[in-house]
Amino acid sequence: MPKLIGDSLATHREQVRERVFAALRAQLYERGFEAVTLSGVAAAAGVGRSAMYNHFPDRQALLVAFVEAEAARYVADLDAALAGVSSPAERLAVFARMQLRRLAEFHLPPGQALAGALDPQAYRRIAAHADPIGDRLAAILHDGAADGSMVAEGPDVLAALVSAALTSRRIVDVAPSELDATVETAVRAVLRMVSTPSRD
């Protein structure tokens, strides 16, 4: 019987998942999903292959579980960051900044490429995790329209434009020394995109 990590089976399973996810995160960053194998992740995580297959029967199951865990953590972090911010413009700046930072750190193929790498059911499960994030953006834009600080026409179109801007890898694929300035430039551009014209 394999040695337990932690003081219970539940703790063991959770710690194995965390080690596997950490190894997968590193491999996604270094090589991309196409180069990831279960055996490679297991070796990097220090987990036996049989234990790995008990948790994740295939690459797709591993990726879906990883994205679910990352998305839940990210939405919790996003909600915490937005909770102390009052104005819609400031909330949108926080949202945009976090989205771009996440994009810089999270290395998955873009939507269409990912759709081709996964079966339809697995892709739908991963895509569903964008819904709570989109809901936060829609709420910010709605509040901005309500107080007159943001344009009210076509909120769905506006949300789609902002989302598209914040998922462009070209923004964050820069040298690490340039990332802070690039992110702030993009945040200012997003704010200008949605702000109502000045009445000065």
Rank of each mutant, 00 (worst) to 15 (best):
V151G: 14
V64W: 02
H142T: 15
E70R: 15
A117R: 15
V67G: 03
I5S: 04
A160M: 11
A42R: 01
E30C: 02
A69Y: 07
A152W: 06
R59I: 04
L161C: 11
A115C: 01
R136K: 14
A122R: 12
L103T: 00
L100K: 01
M98V: 07
A122M: 12
E105K: 10
A127H: 13
P155S: 09
L158I: 07
F95L: 06
L9R: 14
A113E: 14
V75R: 08
L179Q: 08
S86P: 00
V64M: 00
Q112R: 13
A51C: 00
Y74N: 11
R169V: 00
L166Q: 03
T182E: 05
R102M: 05
I140N: 11
D143N: 11
V20K: 00
A186Y: 05
A152T: 05
L78Q: 09
A165D: 08
V157R: 14
A93E: 13
R31N: 08
A189S: 15
A89P: 11
V172Q: 01
R73D: 12
L191A: 04
H107V: 08
A165K: 11
V174Y: 05
R49W: 04
A113R: 13
R169K: 08
P155V: 12
A145D: 06
S87L: 05
I133F: 06
V85K: 10
L62K: 02
L24P: 10
A117E: 15
P109D: 03
R102E: 04
A145F: 11
P155G: 11
L179V: 05
V16R: 12
T11N: 07
T196C: 12
L114Y: 06
F66C: 03
R124S: 05
I5W: 09
L24V: 12
